[in-house]
Design a protein around this nucleic acid. Structure first.
Lengths: 334, 334
DNA sequence: GCTCAACTCTACAACGTGGGAGATCCCGCG
DNA sequence: CGCGGGATCTCCCACGTTGTAGAGTTGAGC
């Protein structure tokens, strides 16, 4: 690997002149610059980023901490984040926490995380009341998702209450009255589950529909199989319902599958709306109505907040951003 | 951020002694080491990885170049790779190429890629006859997937021919005789499509079943919607078939969805086997039989090859590794 | 022809760490 | 008591880059 010294020697100039040429320093004779350029080409020289990073104190790397890439929502979020980062010339190191608090904290404090200029942190294990643990991290952080709403730093997320309300209103507008809320979490009022439940209840209230606690189904872990399991329990219990708001697409798909096993028709017998609008919602049978939470907007704003934090000399006050959502109506609720 | 100098000053020793303490240099008095440890704790010192990287010439970063994270196969591959890397204390920078040749090459030669100690390269755009372009990259590379089989470096992949043959044999064993091969690519004999087609044909041969070219369906781009589109064309054409080997799970799921729209029962009318065994195969309706290609093994071996290449003083001869596959029989072919 | 500012380039230092070589100390042994 | 050798620690420097300061050059204006 040739270094800047080799280029300087070949071009017959000082290393600083080579550096100047690379960095478009204005006060250079064109002839000198050309000599440097030629030497760079001849040697195939490329600047050593590590050295540059050491000098500048920046690495151009962001760390994205998410629970699990196999979860389609996070894979698509990662995709959005990487595209937004790429547009800024930044690279992304993805770290999987498995949603475990200990591992999340370990990742935040790991030597590896410290290599990144900033951290996009989609907390799953850490709770609101543990948010103060974040202040001990000197690397700028932007929070994604719901688990920490009022942390010591910026927070970018989706309109959970409004999205769930829109989904529920949509089902009500179809004339449905007994609407399952699939994916609640006992006692949780913040977090995605709690917020979406709030939206669900707001919609019922508005429409003056009675709230039946039996229609609210707790699920720990939003995966296809937990959705399927929950639906089996519901059907076994004999509860009647004519619609379902699922708090993410995975459990909606799992539950739909079980309903179909039991001969329940979607949307005729039960209309279904999911949440997240993952790619698969377009290809399930029937295609799944869903709330598109505005992932690209979340990613873009999060990266902007984070780069601003990185660049800022002074501590910034925490900011909040809620992305635009959109109800996508497909076959499952038509 | 305290540096090693601050620690040295506080502990009353030289910076090298601090360095020695951190790196478990054996010849130290326990008392000295303790002083250093105390000082580190008091200051909250953490070694600067960038400086360490510059000094050592290693970054502990690997670059994983894949077409698209939104594709479940690659998301799950990335997951496996990150776990395998994590076990070695390495971080992974994921770069999405979109499957475009120009972007793939740009990524290989980008300054950012140069930050990584090694590259895991899942080529999609680059062809076999362009493999020589890889030799101009000085960073160690390990190839994943089929697009370049005999490149200038290690290659880790799955047993495509054998897997597709096993899938086809399984369908034949169910008494099926007119088996669609969904996902071929005209004229391609290498690449996943070509290899899997070869396995399909071998199984037919062995069973002395006739080969009907009409049953081989080309698909460009293996997504749910291309699988769905292809199936619509097939049904429109009136070709008769009683089974289907799809060359990945996404097109299998897309095609199944269309079959069900048309009232074709899976597996009664048409038995289906996919390829890749993505998570979703366990949750579709019906659940999808598939070939588990051994992703974890691919990831582990690829990381091992790559770290060996990185550590090696001398150029290594290209190696090949084929992972173990497994036929997973589920409802779609039972 | 002189002055001054702008232009062009260079030497040096510094970012934070770890390798190498050497200085000092201590202990056992003859 | 002197010596050899291991134990322990320090000094110096290099990794490759860029910021700072300044030296030397050029040219416009008078």
């Amino acid at each position: 690997m040739p270094t800047i010294h080799d280029v300087a020697r070949l071009a017959g100039v000082s290393i600083k002149t080579v550096s100047n040429a690379i960095n478009d320093y204005p006060y250079m004779r064109p002839a000198t610059k050309q000599k440097v350029i030629d030497a760079i080409a001849e040697l195939g020289y490329r600047p050593n980023l590590t050295a540059r990073n050491l000098r500048s104190g920046r690495s151009g790397l962001l760390s994205l901490i998410i629970p699990d890439l196999r979860n389609a929502y996070f894979a698509e979020l990662a995709d959005s984040v990487m595209r937004a980062a790429d547009a800024q010339g930044l690279s992304v190191i993805i770290e999987q926490s498995g949603g475990e608090k200990d591992r999340e904290l370990a990742l935040l404090h790991s030597d590896r995380a410290q290599l990144a200029d900033g951290i996009l942190y989609s907390a799953a294990g850490l709770r609101e009341d543990e948010a103060h643990l974040l202040t001990s991290v000197s690397t700028p952080i932007v929070l994604l998702g719901e688990h920490i709403l009022h942390g010591p730093t910026d927070h970018v997320t989706m309109q959970n209450v409004e999205g769930a309300r829109a989904a529920t209103e949509h089902l009500i507008s179809l004339g449905r009255t007994r609407i399952l809320a699939l994916g609640a979490r006992a006692g949780q009022t913040d977090g995605s589950a709690g917020l979406r439940l709030t939206g669900y209840m707001q919609a019922l209230d508005e429409a003056q529909l009675p709230f039946d606690p039996a229609l609210v189904v707790d699920i720990v872990g939003w995966y296809r199989f937990t959705g399927a399991d929950a639906m089996r329990r519901i059907l076994a219990s004999g509860i009647k319902f004519d619609a379902m708001v699922a708090f993410n697409d995975a459990i909606a798909l799992g539950a739909m599958r079980v309903m179909q096993e039991f001969g329940i028709r979607v949307p005729d017998d039960v209309a279904v709306v999911g949440y997240d609008d993952i790619d698969e919602a377009q290809y399930s049978l029937p295609t799944l109505s869903s709330i598109n939470p505005g992932r690209d907007e979340i990613a873009t704003v999060a990266i902007r907040y984070l780069t601003e934090r990185i660049a800022s000399e002074v501590p910034l006050a925490p900011r909040d951003h809620l992305s635009q959502f959109e109800l996508i109506v497909r076959e499952s609720s038509r």
